Deep mutational scan, measured.
Amino acid sequence: SSGAIIYTVELKRYGGPLGITISGTEEPFDPIIISSLTKGGLAERTGAIHIGDRILAINSSSLKGKPLSEAIHLLQMAGETVTLKIKKQTD
Score class of each variant (00 low, 15 high):
E44D: 10
R54E: 09
K66P: 01
S60D: 12
P31C: 15
V9C: 03
F29I: 09
I32A: 00
S23Y: 07
Y7E: 15
R45D: 02
V82A: 12
A57W: 01
G41N: 03
S1I: 13
L56N: 02
I58P: 00
L42Q: 14
I33S: 05
E10P: 05
G15Q: 14
K66L: 08
V9K: 00
L18M: 09
Q76S: 11
E26A: 05
K39Q: 11
E27F: 14
E10M: 08
K64N: 11
S60C: 12
R54L: 07
P17V: 01
K39D: 05
L11D: 08
S61K: 11
A4P: 15
A78E: 09
V9W: 05
I55T: 02
R13H: 11
I33T: 13
T21N: 12
T25R: 08
G65K: 07
L18V: 05
V9L: 08
G19P: 02
S1V: 15
G52W: 03
P28H: 08
S60I: 03
S35T: 11
I5C: 09
L84W: 15
V9A: 14
G65M: 05
G47I: 01
I32H: 05
A43V: 06
L37R: 04
E44A: 13
S23I: 08
M77D: 12
I33P: 00
G24V: 04
G41M: 02
Y14T: 15
A43E: 01
I22S: 01
G3L: 06
P31T: 05
L68Q: 02
P17S: 13
P67S: 11
G52K: 01
T46H: 14
G16R: 07
I22V: 09
S35G: 05
A4H: 14
T21I: 06
F29G: 13
L63W: 09
A57P: 01
N59Q: 01
T81V: 04
R45E: 12
G52S: 03
A4V: 09
K12P: 06
I55G: 02
E70W: 10
S61Q: 11
S61Y: 10
K39F: 04
P31M: 08
S23Q: 13
D53F: 00
P28V: 08
R45Y: 02
G24L: 07
I6W: 06
G65L: 05
A43D: 05
A78C: 10
S69H: 06
R13K: 14
S36W: 00
N59V: 03
Y7I: 14
T8W: 05
Q76C: 10
G52P: 04
E27W: 08
I58A: 02
I5E: 11
G47N: 10
A43H: 04
I20W: 05
I55V: 12
T83I: 14
G15V: 03
S2P: 08
V9Y: 00
I6S: 11
A43C: 06
G19F: 01
G79R: 15
I58C: 01
T38M: 11
L18I: 07
R45G: 12
S2T: 14
E70N: 11
K64M: 06
G65P: 00
L68P: 04
M77A: 12
M77F: 09
R54D: 05
G65H: 14
R13S: 12
